[in-house]
Design a protein around this nucleic acid. Sequence first.
DNA 1: GCCGTTTTCGGCCCGACTGTTTTCAGTCG
Length: 564
Amino acid sequence: MAVHNTEVADLFDKMADLLEIKDENPFRIRAYRNAALTIRNLSKSLKNMIEEDIDLTGLPHIGKDLAAKIREIVETGTFAALKKVGLPLGLSELMRIGSLGGRGIKKLYEGLHITNLEELKEAAETGKIREIVGFAEHTEKKILENIATVTESKKRTKLIVADRILEDFVEYLKSGEVAGSVRRRKETVGDGDILVADDGSDVIDRFVVYEDVKKVLAKGPTKSSVLLKSGFQVDLRVIGKESYGAALLYFTGSKEHNIELRKMAVKKGLKINEYGLFDGKKRIAGKSEQEMYRALGLPYIEPELREDRGEIDAAQKGKLPSLIDVKDIRGDLHMHSTYSDGKCDLEGMVQAAVKKGYEYIGVTEHSQRIRIAGGLKPKEVEKVIRHIDRLNKKFKNIIILKGIEVDILEDGKLDLPDDILAQLDYRVCSVHYKFNLSLQAQTERIIRAMDSPYFNILGHPTGRIIGGRKPYDIDMERIMQAAKERGCVLEVNSQPDRLDLNDLHCRMAKEIGVKVAVSTDAHSIDDLDRMKYGVGQARRGWIEKKNVINTGTLRQLKKAFKRR
DNA sequence: GCCGTTTTCGGCCCGACTGTTTTCAGTCG
C-alpha cells in the first residue's frame, strides 16, 4: 500500500497535537505543523521523491530529522516517534473540536483520564468536567455543543456556496469586501471573512442581526464572528482607512504567507500587523496591499498565490507568474447539450456562448458506454456532426468545433471506432467507471488510451467529486509526462464540485510543461459561467495564459490538437 | 525541530476576544 502525502502530513499533525497536549517546546510543535503544511502543499509525491533520491531537506521546514522520519513513514508505514510521546492517539482528535487547546486537554487527561472523543462526551454529559479547576459549567456546555457540530458537520464549504453566501451578506451590509480563503479562491473554505473600512457607522451591530445569523460567536468593537443558519461561520473586521490594505492583507492570508511577510519585516527591523507596516511607532505603509508589498521591497502578489508555496521567493527574484485571467479564455472546450445529458439544446448552448463573446466552442457529448448520460452511438455522433455543420453556416461570429467526451474503457481503448473519432476536431477522453483499479492499473489504463492518436484532452483527470468521491488512484506525474511526450493536454474541469485538476496538479502541470485546457463541462447555459472557478484553481497553480490551450486563437488551438 | 547577506546558537508573527484562576492565559485566525 503506497503511503500518500496527506497521510504523512496527518501523522505530523497528530505528532504536533500530542506534543501540544504534553506542553512541549512550542517551537518544536510548530516545526511539525510547518512540515505537515509543506507536505500538503507539495505537488510531487514523497514516495516518488524518495524513489528518485531527491534530497527532502531541500524542502522548506524539512531538516535532517524530519526527512528521516518521512522516509520511515513512507518506507515502513510506521512512525515510531509518535508512539514514543506516550500519550493516547485519541487525544489528537480532541484538538479538532475547538474551544479546547493543548492545555485544556492535558488537564482533562490528567484529571479525568479522558483519552478520546467518546470519553470527553460522557464526562461532559455527567457533569464531571466542571469539577476540574479552570472549567466551569459554561465551558462544559460549550464543549458538548462543539462535539455535536464537529461530529455532524465540521465540513468545509465549497467555494461556490461560500461565494453566494458572502455576496448576499456584503450586499446586506452595503459595504465590505470578501477576504480570506474565498478571496484566495481555495476550492473549499472553512469560514468566510468580510472586511469593512470604518466609516463610523454601526456596521458590527448590523452584522450580528443579519437575518441568516443563528448565533453570535464573538462581538467586540472591531471584530465579530457569527454562525449562520446554514452552519457557515462568517467573521467581520472593521478597520480604519489608513490601515485598510494591511488589514486586507492580514485577513486574506494565508496565515503562512503572512508569517513569512512578518518575518521579512522583522529582518528589516520593522513590524507588520493588521494596522500597517511599522518602523518603531511610525506607520510606513498600510493604505493598500500594493503599498504594503512595495514597502517590503516586493511586487504585488496576487491573492491566489499567497499560500507560502514559494511566491515570496519568486517575488524577490522578480519571477512571479503573470497569471491567467478569465478574460484570456477564448472558448470553452467541454459542454453537453440535450444530445446527451445536457439540459439545453445544442443551438441554445451556441447562442449562450456567442453571448459570452467566445471565438470558438467545442461540443462534447458523451459516448455510447454511458447510456445513463445519453451517450451517443456512432450514428448519433454523425448526426451531431451534421448539425454542427449547419450551425456553423448559421452562426457567423463563432466557430463550433466538433468534439466528443469519449469514455476511456477499462482496457485503455476509446469507446468509439477510429473512423468516427477521425471525423471530429478533437476528443476529450474521460474515465467514468472502474474507479477502484490499483494505482498501476489505473495509470496504465489512461496512458494506454493516450497512445491512441485521437486522444487530445484528458477530461477531469482524477475523477474526484469534492466532498463526494475520492480521486482515483493514479500516478499523476507519470500521466503528465506521458501526456507531454504524446502532445496530449489535461483538463482543468471548472465544475465547482470537481475542480479537477486541482491547484497543486495545475502547478505540477506547469512544472512538467504539459498544457491544460480550462473548460466548464457545462450541462446548462448557467454552467458556462463557471469558467472562473477553473481559472481560479489554475491561478492557484501558477498557470499563465501561455500554459492554456483555449487562450489561443483558433489556429493556435488547432495546432495544439496536433499529436506528436 | 528548523534556520542563517547580522547567527551553526538562539532565535522562532502578532493581535482580538472570551471567560474567569479578576489581571491574564487560552484560544483563534
